[in-house]
Amino acid sequence: MNKRLQYFDGDFLKQLELLHIISKKIVVGRERAERKAKRIGSGVEFADHREYVLGDDLRYLDWNAYGRSDRMLLRLFQEEEDLHVNLIVDGSASMAAGHPTKFDTARRLAAALGYIALANLDRVGVTCVDDAVRARSPASRGRSHIFHLFDFLSGLEPGAGTDLATAVKNTVHGAERRGMAVLLSDFFDAHGYENAIRWLVYRRYSPIVIQIVDDAPTTTTLRGDVELVDCESGRTLAATLSPTVHREYRDSITTHEHNLERFCTENNVLYFRAPVQQPFQDVVLRLFRAGRFLK
């Protein structure tokens, strides 16, 4: 079977179309390519004044202001441009857990967000990372690119260990333009996830963090003496699983999620929790309602 059809079948596309319609209702009256870039450039809409410095184009000098205030001020215009949406998908081995796997859920979410963005004529680029940048789909624009996006996502497989900070650093380092960055991961990173998010903030991206979680891990039914093996690092831990240990493990998971959410809040980063057991549309709708993805 075609890999794309395996993951993104007709039903999935119908659901994406529905999400697109919903997104249109949420952002009423938006026209194509009307997103305003923060960049000041050669647009037509006046944005601000600044002092003239030597070398500036005299065509943009505000002569009226000079007549009134005897100051040489240069008129600035907000440049109109399409938004860059960077979808960063965690492709580490820990994303292979869950039913469906966290990686599948991340792929579906990325596909949905990419579809909405392309439908809004935004540029969408996808990067799969683990401990480095594993694969990248260059930013492209137009609805016709949606199937390229699906093909790219379908071809990904969860692989090695996680080092989000390094991977994100490499991702944003090679990016031509800033924009929105949606980071989809379980954030199970032995090196810490904080630097990865900080990198995005530092490079003036508009980061959105989507944490993929498995609320019903299969290990909860295990009892007795076991040897736990980390799927990424291969580290082992001899443990005796009991209801108490499982309870404490669940507490650790909850703490981990709360820490991530608090970190994102402190850094003005949108945070969403996406359980694999929950339909991906719900997460997308929550994202829409948060108001930052659709402008």
Binding site: A93, S94, A96, A97, D186, F188, A190, T219, L222, G224, D225, V226, E227, L228, V229, D230, C231, E232, S233, R235, T236, L237, A239, V245, E248, Y249, D251, S252, I253, H256
Partner: peptide, 14 residues
């Protein structure tokens, strides 16, 4: 028994 788990640090904590 060997049980493969994601992110063993959380188990270590427990």
């Amino acid at each position: 028994r060997r049980v493969v788990v994601p992110h063993i640090e959380l188990w270590q904590f427990a």
